[in-house]
Nucleic acid binder design. Structure first.
Length: 509
RNA sequence: CGGGGCGUAGCGCAGUCUGGCUAGCGCGCUUCGUUCGGGACGAAGAGGUCGGAGGUUCGAAUCCUCUCGCCCCGACCA
């Protein structure tokens, strides 16, 4: 009994084997599974509705900042990718290439590719080049600017090593691509969208992030500047959760996006691109899930409340179900975050414990158990996923306070994640301390260790490379937020040279 | 792509080194009965070309060759 009570729904626990725990959560929460296609996942309904909610809210934020949606081709002619030198270098190694247009039966009746294309097509790994080629036609005059377009799409990057949600060969994302008349305006756009991402991560996903610049070595291929949001996962590694790139005139030049300014001079435009992907779901899992499975933040929850009817026999069943349906109706009339609260009655023919644990593993914010006893007392028995609290409430009070309760859960998740990050982020001033911080005690089976190290850095790529080679630790970003990370100069502990400000070092996904 | 681990029922595994009855176990599934407020118990069932293709052998899950896939670590990346 005691042994059973102490058992967690997910095995192994986070502290035992974090990567395996992650996979077990994805499976137990019914979020996604591997497909017959190498490196490509099937996103299951519960996981996909998380993505739908991410889309819904982000899309509204894009629209609110003046953007519109469009759609560009899945295929990019090889010659387009070749136009921007750094861009090719960055993506060539992971391109899926279409070379034929049909299948034909050979002498053995096997289907073989036939109809070789004159020019191979690349399945988009990102769309700067194809969209740039289109923008070149759209832009003639300064009056055509800015162009503020986003697309929701899938992209393919043939990665060697894949992990569900975090890195898959095909993934879903959005990519914003904008064109501006001036560098200042494009830079402002880059920053604005980064702030949208940070806002979304913190206030919708309840995942605190650090905004910052990438160093030159971590920059997007072809970008002048890459801004990012970095989040800390529960194994204390960093997850790059979103990026916003200032592309300067690089792509405008390679794609020939030119316009005449007010003075009649022909100029290259300034472009940006920015994106987040289904990786965000992986971030949510690794930020909030625990040893009993997923924990979904209420603002993005596919469903907020499940009602679990408890009864012994058919006679009770009718009474209890009727009560549950009435309760459901009252809950549906309540609103949270501007929308009706999502609730269902789970009347599947399963054992009570199984059903309950199934919902716990999926991470639904609130479970409501309703049995004959509760009905007699006018109460409901409520289980809260984030804290594990279980308590009985008068039925009507429960219904009336639901919106507050959901917001409380949302706030608690963010507060908890912020505390975790604060507990595992620290300033480090010596090389020895730095190396100790990032070296596991047990080499054979490394324990969860390290975190975010705020450390001075002289700006040299050599120092960066050495640390990466020694510890597999990289500069996640040079923070942008001067309030949270004041730009105080100091000495780089690796080179002894001056440093303008501390940067964030961590191991990363 | 380099190093390591692994593919046997829906899931988790044993059996493989040392070839040999009809390929096993746990969970899950089906039916019946007893149960039922946090992962029930009993009984009876269903379910496998042992990842795939070749080869060796009287005989292959087991040995050999090739291949496909998954996981972990590394390099690369959202």
């Amino acid at each position: 009994m005691c042994a059973k009570a102490a058992k967690t729904a997910i095995s192994p626990r986070r502290d035992e084997d974090y990567p395996e725990w992650y996979q077990q959560v994805v499976k137990a929460a019914d979020l996604a599974e591997n497909s017959p296609v190498r490196g490509c996942m099937v996103i299951k309904p519960w996981g996909y509705s998380l993505w739908e909610n991410i889309q819904r809210d982000l899309d509204a934020m894009f629209k609110a900042t003046g953007h519109v949606n469009a759609y560009f081709p899945l295929f990019i002619p090889k010659s387009f990718i070749e136009k921007e030198a750094e861009h090719v270098d960055g993506f060539a190694k992971e391109c899926a290439v279409v070379t034929h247009s049909r299948l034909a039966a050979d002498e053995n009746g096997k289907l073989v590719p036939a109809g070789e294309l004159e020019e191979p097509l690349i399945v988009r790994p990102t769309s700067e080049t194809i969209i740039g080629a289109t923008y070149a036609k759209w832009v003639q005059s300064y009056r055509d600017l800015p162009i503020l377009v986003n697309q929701w799409a899938n992209v393919v990057r043939w990665e060697m090593r894949t992990r569900l949600f975090l890195r898959t060969a095909e993934f879903l994302w959005q990519e914003g691509h904008t064109v501006h008349a001036t560098a200042e305006e494009a830079e402002e756009e880059t920053r604005k969208m980064l702030d949208v991402y940070a806002d979304f991560a913190e206030n919708y996903m309840a995942m605190p992030v650090i905004r910052g610049h990438k160093t030159a070595s971590e920059r997007f291929p072809g970008a002048v500047d890459t801004l990012c949001i970095e989040a800390m996962m529960q194994d204390r590694k960093a997850l790059q959760a979103g990026t916003s790139h200032f592309l300067g005139q690089n792509f405008a030049k390679s794609c020939n996006i030119q316009f005449q300014n007010e003075a009649g001079q022909l100029q290259h435009a300034w472009t940006t691109s920015w994106g987040v992907s289904t990786r965000l779901i992986g971030g949510m899992i690794m930020t909030h899930a625990d040893d009993d499975g997923m924990v979904v933040p209420p603002r993005l929850a596919p469903q907020h409340v499940v009602i679990l009817p408890i009864y012994r026999d058919p006679a009770q069943r009718g009474e209890v179900l009727a009560y549950c349906e009435a309760l459901k109706k009252d809950i549906l009339a309540q609103r949270y975050d501007g929308r009706p609260i999502l609730v269902s009655v789970d009347d599947r023919d399963l054992r009570g414990g199984e059903k309950t644990w199934g919902w716990i593993k999926k991470g639904i914010p609130l479970r409501v158990e309703v049995g004959a006893r509760d009905i007699a007392e006018g109460k409901v028995f409520v289980g809260r996923r984030d804290t594990g609290e279980k308590a009985a409430f008068p039925r009507d009070e429960f219904v009336a306070t639901l919106p507050q309760k959901l917001q409380e859960i949302q706030d608690n998740l963010l507060a908890r994640a912020k505390k975790f990050r604060a507990d595992n982020m620290r300033e480090i001033n010596t090389k020895d301390e730095f190396y100790e911080f990032f070296t596991p005690k047990n080499k054979n089976k490394p324990e969860v260790h390290g975190g975010f190290a705020l450390c001075h850095w002289n700006g040299s790529a050599e120092v960066e490379a050495q640390i990466k080679a020694d510890l597999n630790v990289t500069i996640r970003c040079v923070p942008l937020d001067d309030t949270e990370f004041p730009p105080e100069p100091g000495i780089c502990p690796f080179s002894g040279e001056p440093s303008p400000r501390r940067v964030v070092f961590a191991k990363s996904y």
